[in-house]
Design a protein around this nucleic acid. Structure first.
Length: 154
DNA sequence: GCCAACGTTGGC
DNA sequence: GCCAACGTTGGC
């Protein structure tokens, strides 16, 4: 079992949007970066957990946790020519992009802000990819120790 | 809106 | 394979 951090811009999809979905579950679609795709496809598995991170917003930070309820399968938004995430080079016979299904586990009472996380950039969270310079990946791994530590910050 | 830090594209 | 130009991410 592994832990992850998933980024989303709350203006397009927030933790409250997830809470409003049937069964509080959604396909995590729209990942269009190969490194992130590889992790989604090959490493993230049903039974894993992930932080739901709000990026590019007033208060960037971790808004809650989700459970991975389905391992990778093809991202159908890539096949829909009218969809914002359409990719003509991804075909059903040879899909290029993948999704996982996630279910809301817990929304934090208060967001664990990027600022709060940064306070530990020299210590317990020194290796957290999110805090590394220039990090832009929307799917990154979190160790068990980091996971436990961050939960204590709520 | 700015800009750093990437990733991708395409000419050569 | 190199690398300049361009696009995207995301914090500020």
């Amino acid at each position: 079992m592994n832990y992850w951090l998933l980024k989303s811009e709350p203006e397009s999809f927030s933790i409250d949007d997830l809470a409003g979905r049937p069964k509080k579950t959604t396909a995590w679609d729209g990942v269009r970066n190969y490194q992130a795709r590889n992790m989604l496809r090959d490493a993230v598995k049903k039974g894993d957990f992930a932080f739901f991170y709000h990026s590019s917003c007033d208060v960037p930070g971790i808004a809650g946790t989700v459970a991975v309820v389905k391992s990778a399968y093809p991202d159908e938004t890539a096949f829909d020519r009218h969809h914002h995430h359409y990719d003509a080079d991804s075909r059903p016979s040879d899909p290029r992009w993948y999704v996982i299904d996630v279910k809301l586990q817990r929304k934090f009472k208060r967001i664990i802000t990027l600022d709060a996380l940064r306070k530990h950039a020299g210590g317990a969270l020194a290796e957290l990819p999110l805090l590394r310079r220039g990090n832009r990946l929307s799917v990154t791994p979190v160790t068990q120790k980091e996971w436990d530590f961050i939960l204590e910050l709520e």
